[in-house]
Amino acid sequence: MNMRSHLGRVRGLGSTNDGVRHWWSQRLTGMALIPLTLWLVFSFVGLVGADLNTVKSWVGSHGNPVLLGLTIVIMFHHAALGIQVIIEDYVHGEGIKTTSIIVAKAISILLSASCILAVLRLTFEG
């Protein structure tokens, strides 16, 4: 017997009112991070002990600003989604749970924006 209303089934949002969006976002960002993270790690190997000028020319060269920007946005988003699941699993008070998730997402957005700005400054300022 199906207890769900027709409207509920059509909307497909389930009991969480969020549907599969969170789950799907985590998979898509995860897939995108496979090549991006490998690229970042191998780039870092070449930047061990580098001075500021070397790092600036790495940030600003060819497609690196775009790749860095993508990596930053997707990485912080993926991290916030993962931390959200962990908070939902282990924090049981409704108020503290919602507050922690909002704080985690706020930190993620703040750092993401700051890092993007840093990439732009390192690329375009002398």
């Binding site: 500021l52 940030v59 991290a79 916030a80 993962g82 931390i83 962990i86 890092c115 390192l122």
Partner: peptide, 19 residues
């Protein structure tokens, strides 16, 4: 996953310090 999420703080410190 938790370790890597925390590592974004270190990454941010490193990148921002360059500015």
């Amino acid at each position: 996953g938790i370790i890597l999420a925390l590592s974004t703080l270190l990454f941010s410190y490193w990148l921002l310090s360059a500015t």
